[in-house]
Simulated scan of single mutants.
Amino acid sequence: MRARNLFSLPENEQAPYLELWAELLQTKPHWKTLAEVREQAEPYYAEVARRLVDRLRAHPFTQGVGDIEPVFMSVMPYYFNDPPLDREYLLNRARAGRAYLEAGFTSSTLIAKYLILIEEWSRIFAGLFDRERGRVKSYV
Rank of each mutant, 00 (worst) to 15 (best):
Y79F: 15
Y79V: 12
T109H: 04
A3F: 15
R95I: 11
I111L: 03
P29L: 08
W21L: 11
T109Y: 06
L52T: 08
V75Q: 08
W21M: 04
P60V: 06
Y45W: 13
R87S: 11
P10N: 02
D67R: 05
G66L: 08
D54V: 01
I118R: 01
R57T: 08
R38H: 14
Q26R: 07
M73H: 12
T62Q: 10
A41C: 14
L25C: 13
Q40A: 15
P77I: 15
V53W: 07
E23S: 07
P43L: 06
T109N: 04
E11K: 09
L9T: 14
Y45R: 12
Y17D: 09
Y79K: 14
Q14R: 15
S8D: 10
P83N: 07
A3G: 09
A41T: 12
Q63N: 04
S8K: 13
D82W: 12
R50K: 15
D67T: 05
A3H: 11
A41I: 06
V71Y: 06
A112D: 01
A112C: 09
F80C: 02
S8Y: 10
V71I: 11
A15V: 09
E102P: 00
F105C: 00
P60E: 01
Y100P: 00
L18R: 03
Y17M: 12
G104S: 03
N92W: 00
V75I: 13
N81S: 14
F72M: 12
I116R: 01
R50C: 12
R93H: 06
F105N: 01
T33D: 10
Y79R: 15
S107E: 09
F7V: 12
P16A: 15
R2L: 15
L90N: 03
D86Q: 03
A3D: 11
N12E: 03
P77M: 15
D86C: 04
D54L: 06
G104A: 03
K32A: 13
E120G: 01
M73F: 09
K28E: 14
G104E: 02
A58P: 04
A103N: 05
R38V: 09
R2T: 07
S8L: 13
Q14H: 08
Q14W: 12
Q40M: 14
E39V: 13
P84R: 15
L9N: 06
V48I: 14
A22K: 05
L18Y: 05
Y89W: 13
L20R: 11
S107L: 07
R50I: 11
A58D: 07
L117C: 01
Y79G: 14
P84G: 12
L6P: 02
P43T: 08
D86F: 10
I68F: 07
R93Y: 08
W31A: 14
E69Y: 03
A58F: 10
M76D: 08
V71N: 06
V71F: 08
Q40P: 05
L90I: 10
K28S: 15
E102T: 00
M76F: 14
R98C: 03
F61R: 09
L90Y: 05
A15G: 09
E120M: 00
R55Q: 12
Y17S: 05
P16I: 13
E23R: 11
L24T: 10
L117M: 00
I111D: 02
P10H: 00
R4P: 02
Y78S: 11
G104N: 04
Y100R: 06
R98Q: 02
Y100D: 06
A112K: 03
